[in-house]
Design a protein around this nucleic acid. Structure first.
Lengths: 282, 282
DNA sequence: AGCGGCGATACCTCCCCGGTATCGGACCAG
DNA sequence: CTGGTCCGATACCGGGGAGGTATCGCCGCT
């Protein structure tokens, strides 16, 4: 199976429409139709059911969509990492580390310092990205190693090492009645009147339904809370950056947030290994 | 990057010889040389250093070899799993479960029974394979789920669920001086005079250096021990099949062997999920 | 110098990929 | 029922690229 065929199939399977898929791929529709037919013939499997009401996936088609996306990510990763390895002038390519913007400030700084102090350390590019993007970046080779936060991020398919565990706190506007309590429970803060939990965007940029205000990043969120328009449950490390107008109260029974360092399991990069080792020694 | 180019490169990188690689690929040497050059041009990276003393990998080449092998496995997996999904007459494809021959008899039987009793259970093909092959079968799609034994098998890159933990015993010929001891330590059995540990074949069929007799499977090993030619440290479940001429003694400080069920992290197969659930309920 | 091993180059052929034009069936409006 | 529209399939053509054979160029060895 050729990469080209796989890309074509995935495009059609995602669009469920030959014309739009062809447009997205930058080719005409007839060669796309032919390529898919040929793929189906070679696999001996019907992948798409062409009905009068458009195209649907068969059982085999769903399997190929899922597995094919993973395979295409692996190929992209191979290409990207090779390119990066090649353009390193020293012969020792740098490492791309990705983490959520604003989430891991202090830990990240300590990690970078500790690693930089090691003999043979190479350049570390730090990439900050939105929520849920890290896994994709690690999978398709745009990053080599990531700081993830369980249970929010899925670590499926990566090797990981735990770095730090912390409880969660509820962040409230100053003066809220719950202020001053030593701790609260999830049930106390699940639905505070007038202070809904914010909604974060999905990966495709849309927002889930709900009452809370849509937010894109930490700063927006904290500002909304200070204005008395929202509340949020966040890892207790938010206390490291105190802010006027905000109060935090520990939530006793909120799930523990674990910061882990994650990397692709087949990675044999010396730099990634050294970075992980430095991280575990923190 | 096309699958064909990647396969060509991996062949050359493994053989470190254009002529042999071409032979293995079933093509002539010149088109292979050209394909590799073209790949290097497109990636903008020197992958191979052509010296007068043959071919060696550059830094970028090693990266592409490793990442490329993973990507090719992912593509093979996509193809195999799609084929299997298609040829299922019911529209509900069967599952291929792989485990080491002879290692997990009773647990496997219970698992298959428990799963078969569930509503909506599909056919489970059981594949038995040699040591260390399971990971590859799971990775390239010839199997969908595996029973692995930590710490012998690596579970890197798979989702896992622990099923069973057990200690290890040393297996000795009947009448050996250590027989009758309630337990022994690793240092007691590390090098028993006249009873060397056996050597298992590597993945390529060669044997590591050492004193012990080469063995290919459990039966051979137990027979050699009964003959007084070897000893071995094995999970305590070997006691489930008692055998004349053999005695087992627990090894107090041997690493615990954990049986886990493992599957590819992106699997969304209902059947695999149900199988895992049945396994955790055992 | 001669030879052998090995990768690169030159040149040819044919297949396959992509393009345009067109067809054929399903659904819809009237 | 008929014309129109939407959409995937088919027909046909041209060019690029994949693979083959023959040969070269370089290096190391005897």
């Amino acid at each position: 199976m050729e990469t080209r065929e796989l890309r074509y199939f995935v495009a059609v399977a995602e669009e469920l429409h030959f014309g739009r898929a062809a447009q997205r791929l930058g080719i005409a529709q007839p060669p796309l139709s032919r390529a898919i037919q040929q793929l189906e013939r070679r696999l001996g499997a019907a992948l798409l059911a062409r009905g009068s009401r458009g195209v649907t996936l068969t059982e085999a088609g769903s399997v190929l969509l899922r597995e094919g996306q993973a395979a295409l990510d692996a190929i992209d990763a191979a290409e990207r990492r090779t390119r990066r390895a090649a353009l390193a002038p020293t012969g020792r390519p740098g490492v791309v580390l990705v983490t959520k913007a604003g989430a891991t400030g202090e830990l990240l700084a300590k990690l970078l310092d500790a690693y930089a102090a090691e003999p043979g350390a190479v350049a570390v590019d730090v990439m900050l990205c939105g929520i849920g993007e890290q896994e994709r970046l690690l999978r398709d080779g745009r990053a080599d190693v990531a700081l993830l936060h369980r249970p929010f991020d899925s670590t499926a398919g990566f090797d990981t090492e735990e770095l730090h565990a912390e409880g969660q706190v509820v962040v409230l506007p100053a003066g809220h009645p719950l202020t001053g309590r030593a701790h609260v429970r999830m049930s106390d803060v699940a639905a505070l009147p007038g202070l809904p939990m914010p909604r974060w965007p999905n990966l495709d940029g849309t927002f889930p339904d709900g009452a809370g205000p849509p937010v894109h990043n930490h700063t927006q969120l904290l500002q909304l809370i200070a204005l008395g328009r929202a509340s949020a449950i966040l890892p207790e490390s938010v206390r490291a950056e105190p802010r006027d107008g905000l109060v935090t109260v520990p939530v006793a029974d909120a799930p523990t947030v674990t910061t882990v360092i994650a990397w692709p399991p087949h990675s044999r990069s010396r730099a990634v290994a050294a970075l992980v080792q430095a991280a575990t020694r923190l």
